[in-house]
Amino acid sequence: MKKNITALALAAVVFAACNNGAQKSGDQQQDSAVTAGDAMKHETPADENVTEIKPQFTEVDAKVAASLKPVIDHYIHVKNGLAAGNAAETAAGAKAMGEALGKVDQSAMTPEQQKLYAENEEDLKEHAGHISKNEGNIAHQREHFVQMSEDVYELVKGFGSGQALYHDHCPMYDNNKGAMWLSETREIKNPYFGDKMLTCGVVKEVIK
């Protein structure tokens, strides 16, 4: 009983913070507020519900892993730029990510690995291009970051990343449709709202 009360208390703190932030940011479409009850329909209430998952491919060639690492690193660069509200830094990270994608070594991938990579490669290049070319429009960068995050998530679930990455979820982005992102730290730093609601979100999974 005590454990359940603690979980509910943690949820109340998280969603109250999200709602307070939303009330301060009515100038953007995605900043519409939701009630705590609405938010809890989308989110698990406590850290204890974080699921640990292992990458799909148990054997990844060292050359493949080494060439994918810069892609993941620059994705994190983009994420941190958005969380900081720095569109120029975000654009720089996306440009570097696009260059890294052009250097991924597919020669040692298995057919199954090649298939997974091919399913996400072109989308990633497209979104990296949009983000890199919109240094003056952080809202547009965030729109493309939504799908970029989904694509990188699929790659990390498949190939791993050589480090623990946390799958986080923001329930309020895009008029409460929600969006996910990956983070190198357990601490929530929301790339969709930046300092307006920096700690709004919940850790759903850890991939390691």
Rank of each mutant, 00 (worst) to 15 (best):
K3Y: 12
K3W: 10
N4Q: 15
A7R: 10
A7F: 02
L10A: 11
L10V: 13
A12R: 07
A12V: 08
C18L: 06
C18A: 06
N19D: 11
N19G: 11
G21Y: 03
S25Q: 11
S25Y: 12
Q28C: 02
Q30A: 09
S32Y: 00
A33R: 09
A36C: 02
G37K: 07
G37S: 07
A39T: 12
A39D: 10
E43W: 13
T44W: 02
T44Y: 01
A46Y: 04
D47A: 13
D47V: 15
N49H: 13
N49D: 13
T51K: 15
E52Q: 14
E52I: 11
K54W: 00
K54Y: 02
P55Q: 04
F57C: 03
T58R: 09
E59M: 09
V60C: 09
V60E: 10
V64W: 01
V64E: 01
A66I: 07
A66L: 04
A66W: 00
L68S: 09
K69Y: 00
V71M: 04
I72H: 11
I72M: 12
I76K: 02
H77W: 11
K79Q: 15
N80W: 01
A83Q: 06
G85F: 02
G85L: 06
A88L: 10
A88R: 12
A88D: 13
A91E: 08
A94F: 07
A94I: 10
A96L: 14
A96H: 05
M97K: 06
G98F: 01
G98N: 14
A100V: 05
V104A: 05
Q106N: 09
M109K: 06
E112P: 03
E112I: 06
Q113G: 07
L116V: 15
Y117G: 01
D123W: 05
K125R: 14
H130S: 04
I131N: 10
S132C: 06
N134S: 14
E135H: 03
G136P: 04
N137W: 03
A139Q: 11
R142V: 07
E143C: 00
E150F: 04
V152F: 05
E154Y: 05
G160T: 09
S161R: 04
A164V: 10
A164S: 14
H167N: 06
D168S: 09
D168Y: 05
C170D: 15
P171H: 01
M172P: 07
D174Q: 14
N175E: 15
G178K: 05
G178N: 05
M180Y: 12
L182N: 03
L182C: 05
R186H: 12
K189A: 12
K189D: 10
Y192L: 08
T199W: 09
T199Q: 10
G201T: 04
E205L: 03
E205P: 04
V206P: 05
